[in-house]
């Protein structure tokens, strides 16, 4: 659905992404892992056309990303940045409703979708509150709901890019949010999500891409990627990898 070939990207003369090929498929959740500064956010910025490429190409649904008109693209591709700088007192549901801007679905349908998005991010109780009065985690959930509203209803042909969507959330809401993401994938959306928690990645992602210094270090199923020696090389972290007794995915335990 979103295909990148030979991606190269430079910043101040230094290569920060090196020859990355990626094919994000409809209905899958692809996790991107890697230490700080490995190029995860840069990769996402390259995939959504935010940063100019030194080489390579990105295509959305078979058409070069640059060739898409703004609104058409926004109807298919939603992007959640790592942090937001909103500094104005919009009400929570107003922020979420901004996700509907690219669509001309009518105010009734929009209100219904905004209601569902508030529900999915578990922030219905915050409706009516000013965004500025919320905590960091609550703000993050508001933006997650906004992104859900932008893509709803989930369908094949749509792409969701998430940069650390659960970094500030409590454990319950980390799971709730990623479950909602899985639900969108089940509806056909192609999802790329940057995560730091290896166990969350193991549980919710179909495939994992492990980056180090702008290069792909490992790419495959969680079982293929999350192996003790690979993690030792990339993160310099001694871990024990077991299999989750109930769910069967790899379980990473710090030594």
């Amino acid at each position: 659905m979103l295909r990148a070939e030979g991606l190269q990207l430079r910043r101040a003369g230094l290569a920060v992404l090196n020859d990355i090929d990626l094919d994000l498929r409809a209905g899958e959740v692809l996790g991107v892992l890697g230490p700080n500064g490995a190029g995860k956010s840069t990769l996402m910025a390259a995939l959504c056309g935010e940063l100019p490429l030194a080489a390579g190409s990105v295509a959305l649904a078979g058409r070069a990303l640059r060739a898409w008109r703004g609104t058409e693209r926004a109807q298919r591709l939603a992007v959640l940045p790592q942090r937001s700088s909103l500094d104005f007192a919009f009400r929570v549901e107003e922020v979420v409703a901004m996700g509907r801007m690219p669509h001309a679905s009518g105010s009734e349908e929009d209100a219904r979708i905004v209601g569902r998005a508030l529900q999915a991010a578990d922030i219905e109780h915050l409706a009516g509150r000013s965004y500025l009065t919320l905590s960091g985690g609550e703000r993050q959930r508001v933006h997650v709901a906004r992104i859900f509203a932008q893509l709803w209803p989930g369908a094949a042909g749509k792409v969701l890019l998430l940069d650390e969507p659960v970094s500030m959330l409590d454990p319950l809401h980390q799971h709730l949010t990623l479950q909602a993401v899985r639900q969108l994938a089940a509806d056909g959306v192609a999802v790329l999500v940057i995560l730091h928690d290896l166990n969350l990645a193991a549980r919710y992602c179909d495939r994992l891409l492990l980056l180090r210094s702008g290069c792909v270090r490992a790419f495959g199923t969680p079982h293929e990627v999350l192996q003790a020696e690979i993690l030792k090389q990339v993160f310099d972290l001694e871990v024990l990898v077991q299999t989750h007794p109930g769910l069967g995915h790899p379980l990473i335990i710090d030594r």
Partner: peptide
């Protein structure tokens, strides 16, 4: 309104 979210956010909303 979208611009208040941030420049890249506004771009991703199609503006």
């Amino acid at each position: 309104n979208a611009l208040l979210l941030g420049e890249s956010e506004a771009r991703h909303l199609g503006f």
